[in-house]
């Protein structure tokens, strides 16, 4: 007891004497914010365009990547935006959040998530997370998309609606190739019974977008149920190589 009291007193004294040392979540170097300037530039690339259909980071003047221009992108989404390029330390951070049980790391990223989302997407009526199948939710203990959606909803004061459900326990998308991913999720999602979303503008939220098959399927369900427009936000996306537009190979 006395020891605990001493430790508490010590930590208060430390607060008074020492400036709190923050380190960048991605590179571990000392920084005044949760991500340092170098990492933000390296992974978020704010100046680079995103494909309007699938969120992929693209070069040049086109609005969409080659795949989406060829008609292979999702059909029901008005715009998709990704906060950063899914590679290196940013990819590792998303893995830590998703697979290593650290969803609370998203709280430290709140200011970057919200400012990017607000800049890129029009104001929504509600924010909807991509659901996990109950079996996977039971194994993992949390749905990273739901945590991400709750961070956005909490910071921006927008309603969070957990209205989609996953009715098929599919093979994880990360284990499949491009063509398999596109078929894997057919009819995997549905709207929960008794839910009304008529004329609503919705932000659909997921952790990573690669082929956009998951968010595409979810958007289809939302649009069929009467949503006016569906926009998507995610933490990371692939990048279209100027020489090799087929990003499936990059990922």
């Amino acid at each position: 007891m006395a020891n605990k009291f001493f430790l508490q007193a010590k930590s208060i004294a430390e607060l008074l004497w020492y400036e709190e040392r923050k380190t960048c979540l991605l590179c571990g170097k000392q920084a005044s914010t949760s991500l340092c300037q170098d990492c933000r530039q390296l992974y978020f690339r704010p100046e680079q365009r995103r494909c309007l259909s699938c969120g992929k980071l693209i070069e040049g003047e086109a609005d969409r990547c080659q795949d989406c221009r060829d008609g292979n992108g999702p059909k029901f989404l008005s715009k998709v935006t990704a906060l950063g390029h899914y590679e290196g330390a940013w990819k590792q951070c998303i893995h830590n959040i998703k697979y290593k049980g650290q969803p609370y790391l998203l709280i430290g990223l709140a200011e970057y998530l919200t400012s990017w989302a607000v800049k890129q997407l029009p104001p929504p009526d509600s924010i909807v997370p991509v659901p996990l199948h109950p079996n996977r939710l039971a194994q993992r203990g949390f749905n990273q998309a739901e945590v991400l959606a709750s961070v956005l909803a909490g910071c921006l004061g927008i309603k969070l609606k957990d209205i989609l459900c996953r009715v098929k326990d599919t093979t994880p998308q990360s284990a499949l190739g491009r063509q398999e991913r596109l078929v894997n999720l057919r009819c995997a999602f549905s709207l929960k019974p008794g839910i009304q979303i008529k004329e609503e503008v919705i932000w659909l939220v997921d952790d990573v977008v690669t082929t956009a098959a998951t968010i595409g399927e979810c958007a289809a369900v939302l649009k069929e149920s009467g949503a006016q427009e569906v926009f998507a936000f995610c933490l990371g996306a692939g990048r279209e190589s100027p020489n090799n537009p087929d990003t499936a190979s990059i990922l």
């Binding site: 430790l7 049980g101 609370y104 039971a138 993992r140 203990g141 949390f142």
Partner: peptide, 16 residues
């Protein structure tokens, strides 16, 4: 026993 992060999961309060 002193330094952990608590967060809500599907199974209720969870600590890292």
């Amino acid at each position: 026993e002193d330094c952990y992060q608590i967060w809500p999961s599907y199974y209720g309060n969870t600590a890292t």
